Computed example of a mutant assay.
Amino acid sequence: MASTPPRARRTSIGASLAVAVATLLAVLSPSPASAAVVFADGFENPVIFNDFTTFAAGQQLGPWTVAAGTVDLTRDWQHAEGNQSLDLNGYSPGAVARSLPTTVLTTYRVRFALAGNPDNGPVVTSGTVTANGQTIDDLTFDTTGQSPSDMGYVYRTAYFTNVLSHSTTLRFTSTTPGAFGPVVDAVRVESCLLVVCPASATRTAIRIS
């Protein structure tokens, strides 16, 4: 009986290994839906009863701390979820921050809804989203054509890879002058194993320490 040529045997073994590896990854890899939720907040606390309530630096806003300036918790327009959202400009540009438990050498996915205060005519908002001081996204939003009943929310996704720290400070900061700035809602942070993150995300994740 004729023996199988060495090259054919190597090809067959290589194909078998590829199938085995693919099968193993399929078994071990969680689906995106199984990514662990670290933090989720839609600015529903504290419940306010006016159109808006202003909070100043140092005050607590549910699980967030007002880190700079002033911000408004508002019920006065459409929200991405629930009954309240956060205007990052109260009487002046403001910021909110929250400390999150994080695991070393782990990538995290930050999702949030972004709009802008439409009450002063068209404006392009500006600001940053940072993790331990490293910018992972911006808060640019054009309010042209938007209204309190149709805010035009867009959903943004950013990634960061925690290298050394056991906690990470997530911060949303407005750099928009005046009292009409970015509006944020529906913030969600998930731990994201590399097998869960899309390839583009793992290449663009900001490394922090």
Score class of each variant (00 low, 15 high):
T125G: 05
V184P: 00
T169E: 15
P63W: 07
F141D: 00
D119Y: 15
P63Q: 04
R109V: 12
N45H: 11
L194T: 15
P30N: 10
T173L: 15
N50K: 11
D41P: 04
T157P: 07
G181P: 00
G42Q: 02
V124R: 00
A20M: 10
G82P: 03
A205V: 01
N120M: 13
R109K: 15
P177T: 01
R171C: 12
D138H: 06
R188G: 06
D87M: 11
F172G: 07
T107C: 11
T204N: 13
N83M: 10
R111N: 11
I206D: 02
D41N: 12
R203E: 09
W77Y: 11
G94F: 01
I13R: 09
I13Y: 11
D185P: 05
T140A: 12
I208E: 12
A201T: 04
F55M: 05
N117Q: 04
G178V: 00
V154S: 07
A158R: 04
F141G: 01
L61Y: 06
R207M: 13
T169G: 14
L17N: 14
Y155A: 03
M151H: 06
V154N: 03
P118T: 04
P5N: 09
S31V: 09
V189H: 04
G69D: 11
R75D: 14
N83D: 14
T53L: 08
V37D: 14
T169C: 12
A115W: 02
I13F: 06
G133N: 10
L86P: 00
Q78M: 07
T144G: 06
G127N: 03
T70W: 06
T53C: 09
A113C: 07
A56C: 07
N50L: 15
V129Q: 04
E190Y: 04
R98H: 14
P46E: 13
Y159S: 07
I136C: 03
Q84G: 13
V183N: 02
R98M: 09
C192R: 09
D150W: 04
T135M: 12
G116E: 00
V66I: 11
P93L: 02
A40Y: 05
R75N: 13
V47S: 05
P93Q: 04
D138A: 08
F55N: 02
V71H: 05
A95K: 01
A113P: 01
A36I: 03
Y108W: 08
I136P: 00
T175W: 00
H79K: 14
G94I: 01
Y159C: 12
Q146M: 09
D41E: 10
F43S: 11
A57I: 07
V124P: 00
G62K: 03
N162D: 15
I206R: 08
F52P: 00
S99A: 10
G14S: 13
D185L: 08
T106S: 14
T103N: 09
A113V: 01
G42D: 14
V19L: 15
V195S: 07
G14F: 05
A179Y: 07
L105K: 10
T128K: 12
R188S: 09
A158V: 08
H79P: 08
D137H: 05
G127T: 02
R111E: 14
Y159G: 08
D51E: 15
S126G: 09
P6M: 05
S200L: 15
L61M: 12
G121S: 07
V71F: 03
P118K: 02
V163T: 13
N162T: 06
N89K: 06
F180M: 15
Q78K: 02
F49L: 09
N132K: 05
